[in-house]
């Protein structure tokens, strides 16, 4: 058994770092130093190869809509909204919302880019169609 704990087992864990990054407007992903693949959501071990040797890297923010849906609401509960799965350029897939266009107009295959904003009170990684201001 290794006598020294890997650096990534010390200090604040991946969850805490993720939330701190997002709070500070930073969208960062874990990338494995062993197999080279990125992963999301935050974990202590690479989900691809199991290594504890990984580092935080800035996400490009580029993504593609893998699937999409429209959550219908009663008018008194607020407007309908989009729920989508986004394939990030770095490889991982995440749930998010594509905003800035009507929910039914979000299409599979659409290029999107990330931004960080609060949805309720906490900031989240959200997406808008690529190339929009």
């Amino acid at each position: 058994m290794a006598s020294e704990r890997a650096a990534n087992f010390q200090g604040p864990g991946p969850d805490a770092v993720w939330f701190e990054n997002v709070k500070n407007g930073k969208f960062r992903l874990q990338r494995c130093n062993h197999c080279g693949k990125a992963f999301f959501y935050p974990r202590p071990l690479c989900v691809h190869c199991g290594s504890a040797d990984w580092a935080w890297v800035d996400a490009s923010g580029k993504g593609t809509v893998y699937s999409t849906s429209v959550v219908r609401q009663r008018p008194e509960d607020g407007p309908d909204y989009n729920i989508a799965l986004i394939d990030l350029a770095e490889g991982p897939r995440m749930m998010s919302r594509v905003t800035g266009i009507p929910a039914p107009e979000v299409k599979i295959g659409m290029a999107v880019e990330a931004y960080i904003a609060p949805l309720d009170k906490d900031p989240l990684v959200l997406f808008k169609p690529a190339g929009r201001a």
Binding site: F40, Y41, P42, Y66, S67, T68, S69, V71, Y81, I83, A84, L85, M94, M95, S96, R97, I108, L119, D122, L124
Partner: peptide
């Protein structure tokens, strides 16, 4: 869950995404 903060209407939403795909 890192999906839950986006407020998908579960469980329906997950299956709807599968159907759309």
């Amino acid at each position: 869950s890192f999906d839950a903060p986006y407020r998908p209407r579960q469980p329906i939403n997950s299956y709807a995404l599968a159907a759309a795909r």
